[in-house]
Computed example of a mutant assay.
Amino acid sequence: MFTSLEQVMIHLFKTDVVWLCAMSDKNYEEIQQSVGKYSAEMENKTLEEMKRGYLKFSEQYIEFLSSQEDLDAIKTLKHPMYGQLETRVSELVQHVVNHGTYHRGNITAMLRQLGYPGPSTDYIFYLYEKQTNQ
Rank of each mutant, 00 (worst) to 15 (best):
H95R: 04
R52N: 03
D16M: 10
I74A: 15
T87A: 08
P119R: 03
L20M: 13
R52L: 14
K14N: 12
L127Y: 07
L127I: 14
H79R: 04
G53S: 06
V97M: 05
E63M: 08
Q7N: 04
Y116S: 12
L47N: 02
S4V: 12
E30Y: 14
K45S: 11
K26Q: 02
E48A: 02
L92S: 06
F57C: 07
G115D: 13
N44P: 02
F125H: 11
C21A: 01
G118T: 01
F13W: 13
Y38E: 15
R52V: 11
S39N: 09
G100K: 00
L127H: 01
R104P: 03
V35Y: 04
M42A: 06
V18P: 02
M110I: 11
L92I: 15
P119D: 12
I31E: 02
I124E: 10
Q134L: 15
E6D: 14
T76E: 06
D122T: 09
D25M: 15
N44Y: 05
F64S: 03
M110P: 13
G83L: 06
S58T: 08
E59I: 11
T132L: 15
F125Q: 09
T76P: 07
K14W: 06
V8C: 12
R52F: 02
M1Q: 02
V17T: 12
V93K: 08
E69F: 00
G118P: 08
E49W: 05
S24E: 05
E48I: 00
I124K: 04
E29Y: 03
L5Q: 08
S67D: 00
E129D: 15
K37F: 04
T76C: 04
A22G: 07
E49N: 09
Y28G: 04
V93A: 04
L47I: 13
F57G: 10
Y116A: 14
H11P: 10
G105H: 04
F2P: 06
Q131P: 01
V18N: 08
D122G: 00
N98S: 11
T101I: 01
G100R: 06
Y116G: 09
G83H: 14
K56R: 04
W19S: 11
P119E: 10
T46I: 10
E48P: 00
N27K: 07
C21E: 05
A22R: 11
M23V: 09
V18R: 14
L92C: 06
D72E: 13
E30R: 07
T3W: 13
V96F: 02
G83F: 13
P80C: 02
H103S: 08
T87R: 00
T121H: 13
Q94Y: 03
I124P: 02
T132D: 09
Q68A: 05
I62D: 08
T108P: 06
C21G: 03
P117Q: 13
E69Q: 11
D72N: 09
I62S: 13
R88L: 03
L55K: 11
G115I: 09
K45T: 09
K51D: 12
H79F: 04
Q7A: 05
V89C: 13
H103D: 06
L65G: 03
